[in-house]
């Protein structure tokens, strides 16, 4: 059964600024991704950057439960996130979680900024989540960020976006299975989608954007 904390973290209504993120969809559509390819785009992300983020979150959670510093896992995530634009966007999104966390519990990190998956992991630690729950949340949030941004960016029926999320379920299950047992930063998946990285990298200079990233 999902814990209350897991449900809160998986809920877009949690006030962390999630509505400002499109999980790479806006840059992709601006650069030429066809709306018909969005379901495949969701799978691409689960195969690559979401695996990286989910693995990062899980290893971060283990380090937090062990009372160990997060620096090695921050380094590992940075090495897997080559664009400074993508790094900055994740750190900015992470600030939303850190701010909520700080307001709720007085939580303060040794490092002033954490990428989003580690900021989520820190809240997950406070709320006693399991590694599998956390990995599931990272996948779910990315898929739903794409789906909800799609409704703003391209004409579609919300029922369609739900069907995309349902169809991505098997791939999300595989991510959870693959990363839930990780405890070594070196073992965090490093799967990359170079084209998508370049799309997101270009978004830093895009004008007339709706979403931060």
């Amino acid at each position: 059964m999902m814990s209350g904390g897991a449900l809160l973290l998986g809920d877009a209504r949690l006030p962390t600024g999630g509505h400002t993120q499109s999980a790479g969809l806006e840059p992709a559509l601006l650069t030429g991704l066809s709306p018909a390819s969005i379901p495949g785009f969701i799978v691409s992300r689960l195969r690559t950057c979401v695996r990286v983020d989910a693995g990062t979150a899980v290893v971060g959670l283990r380090l937090l439960y062990a009372g160990a510093p997060l620096d090695p896992v921050v380094d590992a995530w940075c090495a897997r996130t080559p664009s400074e634009v993508v790094q900055a966007a994740s750190i900015e999104a992470g600030r939303g979680y850190l701010r909520l966390h700080q307001r709720l519990t007085g939580f303060a990190t040794a490092t002033p900024a954490l990428p989003r998956p580690l900021a989520v992991a820190a809240l997950a630690h406070s709320w006693d989540l399991s590694a599998a729950e956390l990995a599931r949340i990272i996948c779910h949030d990315d898929v739903q960020s794409v789906c909800s941004a799609a409704l703003k960016l391209t004409p579609c029926d919300p029922v369609d976006t739900v069907s995309w999320a349902v169809a991505a379920g098997d791939e999300a299950d595989r991510v959870v299975t693959e990363v839930q047992g990780l405890d070594d930063p070196d073992d965090i998946p490093a799967a990359a989608a170079p084209e998508m990285e370049l799309w997101q990298h270009a978004h830093g200079n895009a004008s007339r954007r709706l979403f931060r990233a």
């Binding site: 209504r13 962390t16 600024g17 509505h19 400002t20 499109s22 703003k152 709706l210 931060r212």
Partner: peptide, 21 residues
């Protein structure tokens, strides 16, 4: 500047995170 993800109402009312930051 704060981007609102096409949710200007949300950004000042129900999820003020990015404005607060």
């Amino acid at each position: 500047a704060v981007e609102t993800g096409a949710c200007p109402h949300t950004a000042i009312r129900d999820d003020i995170t990015m404005n607060s930051i």
